[in-house]
């Protein structure tokens, strides 16, 4: 070993004064923390400026009267106390639906979609986890197409499929004699089913990716041992596959739920600015509050209510999964 320069000798001296084991769990040396912290500064500043600050401003604004006229001087906008929250909850202030109903529809739709996507995504991953025929690689790629399509593209596509009378669905129903009445997926009673169905179509590929990745991390030996023990398919899934992919699936499920919960594009393109009540979800409702009635404080109050409503169940869920009780 060449003669180390001074800095390195310090380092080596300290290494010799500790055992390898201490190094492993004592992490880096105290002196090594400084460059790490320095490295972190730019990223931390960016996070603070573009994430933390806007979020805090948003919460502050939810207690203010922030209309188009007061926007210029937003920092001196009058305080309203909880009035925005009262209006958001009971649907006053020009909202077409109450915040409670919008929150409920959003929760219902995003959680339902994620649950269905978990089932489809895991089944899909199991169906291509090993190359069983020459179709496997083709399917692996095909399964990703709906998720890879940009949101606005797939939203237009389904809009044109579901369009009453002239869309593919009604043309097909007419052709095979399943009735002539225009469907009510975009305009009426079945809009909730349309939203969940279309979103499931675009979202299961995301869960599929997480499931496929989880499956790769399970050692084959476990399955071979289970085979020798005579385990059934269900038992193998229950005791080997599921525990092996559980945590990764949970992360996928949380990200996917947040994605549906905050998705503006799909409901907006399918149902427009004035959606049927059953699909008047939070993003479109608070968008309407902000950019069609220009009550930004009200929009922020709606958003804060929405964040609280989704974050509590997600925290409970994450704790449950990662505490190991669910295994």
């Amino acid at each position: 070993m060449p003669l180390p320069p001074k800095r390195r000798r310090d380092h080596a001296d300290r290494v010799s004064s500790r055992t390898r084991r201490q190094r492993a769990d004592g992490a880096l040396f105290r002196r090594d923390l400084r460059p790490l912290v320095l490295m972190m500064i730019p990223a931390a500043l960016v996070l603070i400026i573009i994430d933390l600050a806007p979020a805090i401003i948003g919460v502050i604004n939810s207690f203010r009267l922030l209309a188009f006229s007061t926007l210029e001087h937003w920092f001196s906008a009058p305080w309203l106390g909880l009035r925005n929250y009262r209006e958001a909850l009971d649907g006053g202030g020009g909202l077409s639906v109450s915040g409670l109903s919008a929150t409920w529809h959003s929760l219902e739709y995003s959680i339902l979609t994620t649950l269905l996507a978990l089932v489809v995504g895991v089944l899909a991953a199991l169906s291509v986890s090993r190359r069983t025929s020459s179709a496997t690689p083709v399917l692996r790629a095909l399964y990703l197409v709906p998720t890879a399509l940009p949101l606005f593209t797939s939203s237009y596509l389904w809009y044109s499929i579901l369009l009453p009378k002239t869309g593919l669905l009604d043309v097909f129903r007419h052709a095979v004699g399943l009735g002539n009445t225009p469907n009510r997926f975009l305009v009426g009673g079945h809009s909730f089913a349309a939203l969940v169905g279309v979103d499931l179509w675009l979202a299961w590929g995301f869960i599929y990716l997480f499931a496929l990745a989880g499956l790769q991390s399970i050692p084959r030996e476990l399955y071979e041992a289970a085979e020798i023990d005579g385990a059934t398919r269900v038992q193998k899934f229950r005791y080997i596959t599921y525990p092996g992919i559980r945590k990764l699936l949970a992360v996928g499920a949380v990200l996917s739920t947040f994605g549906h919960y905050n998705d503006f594009t799909l409901p907006y393109i399918l149902f427009g600015a004035a959606p049927p009540t059953g699909v008047a979800v939070l993003p479109t409702t608070s968008y309407a509050a902000a950019y069609s009635i220009y009550n930004f404080g009200l929009a922020d109050a709606l958003a804060v209510i929405g964040v609280i409503a989704i974050i509590i169940p997600v925290i409970v869920y994450i704790r449950y999964v990662f505490s190991g009780k669910a295994a």
Partner: peptide
Amino acid sequence: QSIPTVMVLLP
């Protein structure tokens, strides 16, 4: 990821 775009947009 749970914060709606609408809320971050105005700030």
